[in-house]
Nucleic acid binder design. Structure first.
Length: 257
DNA sequence: ATGGCAATGTTTCATTGA
């Protein structure tokens, strides 16, 4: 099974790229973030033509998530949001696909350390942790993927000194991310030897992509039974190239049957 | 082979992202 997560930064704009990408990579499940679409405008038909069924929760302008699964997949228990955490923002979609609990997340950006949005990000992380703690009991085979807006370690940052203490790299955010791993989840990317300076996001400005000035903030975390099944993990850097790219690249894991 | 912000709506600028 090939499982992917991709922050598309507007599904309307990125639809042609997404359709081409689905055809080229043939993933089984894809979690999308920042669709920025109200549900009535979701391109259900185009996604279906590509051979996928979609479950989604969107809103105008900001946020929005979707979970795509290959047509014919056995899909159960579709859910949205975080139980017990009131949130207008559409940031979580979950479904059980082929016996695997897949949770797609778009973690708040946080804007700046110490801001109101930063406090919201930390509260959000705490609520996500509580949800995952409960879900892991119910669903031993669990994957949570998406835009976590945290670079877990300095090796996930092109210039650690520049980013030290800044949003996405602060001690508080890294602790919030590490608290998810404390539940028994693993960062799939680090299950394997990876090339140095591999990132998943590059600023649109300042030639950040050609200079490879990026951060690794998009992740897929796996529970122990899926860690056992994981045979590959990678970031599709090529998808950041060319005309009208998202500022994020897709992240993928391959699981054996 | 990569390229100097992009996307959205409140639209002719302000807001947000990371």
């Amino acid at each position: 099974m090939l499982l992917a997560a991709w922050n598309v930064n507007s599904l309307s704009i990125r639809l042609p790229r997404l359709l081409a990408w689905l055809e080229a990579h043939e993933p089984d499940v894809v979690c999308l973030q920042e669709t920025k679409l109200e549900d009535a405008r979701f391109p259900t038909r185009d996604i279906a033509s590509a051979g996928y069924v979609a479950h989604f929760a969107g809103q105008k302008t900001y946020n929005g998530v979707a979970l795509l699964a290959r047509e014919g997949s056995v899909i159960d228990d579709v859910a949205f949001g975080i139980p017990g955490f009131a949130d207008e923002q559409k940031r979580v979609v979950a479904a059980t696909v082929g016996g695997i609990r897949v949770i797609g997340v778009y973690v708040p950006n946080g804007q700046a350390v110490g801001s109101d949005k930063f406090a919201y990000k930390l509260r959000w992380y705490e609520a996500l942790r509580a949800m995952l703690r409960d879900d892991l009991v119910r669903y031993p085979s669990l994957a949570v993927g998406g835009d976590f807006n945290v670079a877990p370690e300095d090796c996930d940052v092109h210039d650690p000194a520049l980013w030290e203490g800044k949003v996405h790299c602060s001690a508080q955010e890294r602790a919030a991310f590490a608290a998810l791993l404390d539940l028994g989840l693993k960062d799939s990317f680090r299950l394997f030897t990876q090339p140095e300076n591999t990132f998943s996001w590059w600023d649109y400005r300042m030639l950040a992509f050609p200079k490879n000035h990026g951060l690794r903030i998009d992740h897929i975390l796996l529970s122990p039974p899926l860690v056992e099944r994981c045979i590959a993990s990678r970031i599709d850097r090529a998808s950041r190239k060319g005309e009208k790219p998202s500022d994020h690249a897709p992240v993928l894991v391959e699981l054996r049957d």
